[in-house]
Computed example of a mutant assay.
Amino acid sequence: MQYDPIKRSLGKVFNQTPALRKLFYRLLDLLLLRAWHVRKELKNLPLSADCSILDAGSGFGQYTYRMSRLFAKSNILAVDVKEEQIADCNRFFAQINQSDRVRFEEADLTKFVKPEAFNLVLSIDVMEHIEEDVQVFKNFYHSLKPGGVVLISTPSDQGGSDVHDHDHEEGGVQGFIDEHVRDGYNIQEIEDKLKSVGFTRVEARYSYGCPGKISWRLSMKYPIQLLGVSKLFFILLPFYYIIAFPVSAVLNYFDVKGTHASGTGLIVKAFK
């Protein structure tokens, strides 16, 4: 299954007004376990309110919006390869009067470098889509100011995003996520790659442990699969989440608070 058609369908629903867009961001923050982990890490980073930030692979702009609120005087550059999302996000941030310090640009991360321009580089669910990952890590390193940090969320090699959970179809086998160029990172592998480009300290931990894996299926996998079958499930989604969300929220809490010997996701911080 591919995410993009579902994303576009959701975008059409929630992009009609700025209020609906904010609601969409809020729902993603509540439902996505990775958002819980990223929120925890961002709050604990030693960054000033007026820091300079790169959102590397900004997508819908969910994390750009969160950082614009968390770091109230920051300047944020958000980049992505999808031109329509760039235009859409620039339009939204202009509507909420934030375009003076938040802007979106189209960019290829394998080529994008702004020497010593940022205190923080955020990369959420991006690296699993890029073959030339070491080149991107090198670009991140050169784009950070001394003392800066890159924060990465990506699938691990323990079955991230159910890449090993295949749906058998006529003519072949297709995973839940078929847009990835790698199944996920081993902790030692990503640490070694980041250190090879110059990062002096790397901290990596598993996310999506046992509680998180169950939560992800309840809050994301099953609803998206049903939406892929029929858009009529949009009507039933609120009723589904009335039952599923309280369970997922408790599971998310334990996943964020716990330490996991293994997990299908990785949270990685690398310091320059």
Rank of each mutant, 00 (worst) to 15 (best):
210 C>Q: 13
99 S>F: 03
18 P>G: 10
97 N>E: 15
12 K>Y: 06
43 K>F: 14
219 S>R: 05
179 E>D: 14
79 V>W: 11
14 F>G: 04
62 Q>V: 06
243 I>G: 02
58 S>K: 01
119 N>T: 06
122 L>C: 07
136 V>K: 14
160 G>W: 03
99 S>I: 10
61 G>M: 05
220 M>Y: 09
183 D>R: 09
62 Q>R: 00
210 C>D: 07
33 L>H: 11
209 G>C: 07
127 M>H: 13
52 S>T: 15
131 E>Q: 13
226 L>A: 15
69 R>K: 13
192 D>H: 14
172 G>R: 06
262 S>I: 02
129 H>A: 13
115 P>D: 01
248 S>R: 01
87 A>G: 13
221 K>D: 03
27 L>H: 03
193 K>F: 11
141 Y>L: 06
189 E>V: 08
141 Y>H: 13
194 L>F: 14
222 Y>T: 12
147 G>T: 03
253 Y>P: 01
42 L>H: 03
96 I>K: 05
65 Y>A: 03
147 G>F: 12
14 F>L: 13
266 L>T: 10
260 H>Y: 00
162 D>S: 15
248 S>I: 02
165 D>C: 06
229 V>D: 09
86 I>K: 01
89 C>V: 05
66 R>V: 07
2 Q>H: 00
214 I>Y: 08
87 A>D: 12
258 G>K: 04
126 V>G: 08
76 I>Y: 01
211 P>D: 03
247 V>Q: 07
219 S>M: 11
48 S>W: 01
146 P>M: 10
129 H>W: 11
216 W>N: 10
121 V>G: 09
90 N>E: 09
114 K>W: 05
28 L>E: 04
38 V>T: 02
115 P>V: 07
151 L>T: 07
168 H>N: 12
28 L>Y: 01
222 Y>A: 15
221 K>Y: 03
239 F>V: 03
139 N>P: 14
83 E>L: 08
191 E>I: 14
242 I>L: 15
112 F>I: 13
50 D>P: 05
111 K>R: 15
83 E>Y: 04
90 N>C: 05
164 H>V: 02
201 R>P: 12
82 K>C: 05
91 R>I: 04
35 A>Y: 08
156 S>Q: 14
71 F>N: 09
141 Y>G: 07
161 S>Y: 07
